[in-house]
Amino acid sequence: MSGIHPPDPPFSETTERLRRAVDTQVLYNIFHQEAFGFNIAMYFYLTGLSAGSFILSTLAYGFGMNQYKAIGRVGIVLATLLLVIAPFFLLIHIGMPHRAWHLFVYLNMSSPITWGSFLLVLYPINCIIYGYFMFKENMKLTRIFGFIGIPLAISVHGYTGFILAFGKARALWNTALMPILFLASAIVSGIALMILVVWIKDRFFSRSKKIDLELLTNLGKLLAWMIVFDLFLVGSDLLVLVISHSDAQAAAHLILGGRFSIMFLLIENLLGKIIPFILLVVPRFRTLTTMIIASILVVVGIFFMRYVVVAAGEFIPLL
């Protein structure tokens, strides 16, 4: 201690406790390493993209919306590939990857991870069957497996929301909105990725090099309105956090004015949602280039959304 007055903590005021009777300084405390981190955020991101792509691919092959027929095959290939990659981030994350089989033997039905270990097996298998029949042009079976796949796709991403929501010590995670928030952002990122992949496919890999502008415009409209829904959910979550108990207020201040404010406000919401929305809905801006830019912004923005939720949620120490 250098002076009489304790030095101001470098940590920003906004995440300090909100009511304080006297000046307090923590002289000694132990903080253990963070529980989740980049790997888990990446895993959430990839399952979200996968679920979003799958749901898009069922628009034509399940619900018969023929204007989306061109993305059916792209969607299912993406959904399968992304979901094959995603669990590797879990294997990197866990300390004992060679014990991963425990997940299928020692079941604890109250744990979302146990639900997820089965979903992570069933969903890709269903994706492969659905994709097989789609490429075999068997429309009846494609439709059936598409409809089986929709609840699976919703669950395989929705359960990750429950993983965080069950972390009841963390105010940012412990909300019933978390699964639906995750699903909304999954669909947003799925549509954006689809626009990019369809564009790349048409631009560089198709024989005619002709870009299906009508399809991309339809996808762009869909994306814009899903962004509105996502923003609504993020807004509701924030409003309640700001009003709620002290831990929740601290979490809200952390993402609104603290260390994560640039990532949350600027990258995730302004660059990742509001600007793409404007680019997509204002007729003057609506060109192919702006649509591609908007999609890139959304895909990047949703990654930051995953990262902010995971990292900011466990940033504030518990004791």
């Binding site: 879990l90 300390g95 014990r99 991870i113 518990l318 004791l319």
Partner: peptide, 16 residues
């Protein structure tokens, strides 16, 4: 002998 080190318990414990 059973723990796989997934850290979910660490994430959910209110006491760290």
């Amino acid at each position: 002998h059973r723990c796989i080190g997934c850290r979910y318990c660490m994430a959910s414990c209110p006491y760290g």
